[in-house]
Simulated assay, not measured.
Amino acid sequence: MLKEDVRKQIATPLGGPAFPKGPFRFNNREYLNITYRTDLEALKRIVPEPLQVEEPLVKFEVMYMPDATGLGRYTEAGQVIPVTYNGIKGEYSHCMYVDNHPAIAVGREASAYPKKLGAPSLFIDSDTLVGTVDYGSLRIANATMGYKHQPLDFDKAREEITKPTFLLKIMPDFDGKLRICELLQTQITDLIIKEAWTGPARLQLFEHALAPLADLPVLEVLHASHIITDLTVSSATRVYNYLAEEESHSPSKMEEIEVSLQK
């Protein structure tokens, strides 16, 4: 393969990349969102500067995607944290557990979504909407909500889903040092709300060394929503480079050569 042809590729392996080129459209994407109060100090230990935490809140979400262009059908779940950055109110995506390899690969390689392999599910059990997450053979989360108890205003549902999302992109170089360490921002666009509901909800998180959802304990459930949408996820943009200050203070290659010659 010629070098110019290599430069046209979007991902490895060559000839059969792990994911296609976006953008990605999601039809009938279904959300179970549970917002809860947690320990403020635990949040501050987790959320990276320059993001700022103002309230001790976390949103646990389970999302079922039955029709995602290029990615197929899958489910993901995780925690997002309300934050502010330069006066912009948004959410920091803390962790995600996903059951689809192309979705994991494109989320981490082409963007910065903190995705790991897991087994989330979203289903109806009699009169209850249920979201679960397993990591390996162990249950790490149980979420329940009364199924379609009360309509949720579409404007409130839209506001809940379309907040700017901040992502932490970390990529090491071959020597183990950081090659990329950036804060990215993305946002959902072309959103169509099809259904929106609220109702009583509960959330249980279970301790796990490698899937530490319970490090942000559930102290009080404040709000729950069940929303069905069509939407597009936009490309991420860089808003902060953690290595810029370090690079500005590190010697240039020419300076290193001069010092070597002096020795």
Rank of each mutant, 00 (worst) to 15 (best):
T38H: 02
D39Q: 13
L40H: 09
E41L: 13
E41Q: 15
L43Q: 08
L43W: 12
K44V: 09
R45S: 15
I46Y: 04
I46P: 05
P48N: 08
E49F: 14
E49Y: 11
L51I: 10
L51K: 06
Q52M: 07
Q52V: 13
V53K: 03
E54P: 02
E55D: 15
L57C: 07
V58S: 01
F60K: 00
E61P: 00
M63H: 06
Y64S: 15
M65G: 00
P66H: 06
D67P: 01
D67R: 11
A68M: 07
A68D: 07
T69M: 11
G70Y: 07
G70F: 05
L71H: 00
L71D: 02
G72Y: 09
R73L: 05
R73N: 13
Y74T: 05
A77V: 02
G78V: 12
G78H: 04
G78T: 08
G78Q: 02
Q79N: 12
I81H: 02
I81R: 01
V83M: 08
N86F: 05
N86R: 15
G87R: 04
G87N: 07
E91H: 12
E91A: 06
E91Q: 14
H94D: 09
H94N: 12
H94Q: 15
C95L: 12
M96K: 06
V98N: 15
V98F: 04
N100H: 08
N100V: 01
H101A: 14
H101C: 00
I104R: 01
I104H: 01
A105K: 07
G107L: 06
R108M: 14
R108I: 07
E109R: 02
Y113V: 08
K115L: 10
K116R: 15
G118N: 11
G118V: 11
A119F: 14
A119Y: 13
P120F: 09
S121D: 15
S121L: 06
S121K: 12
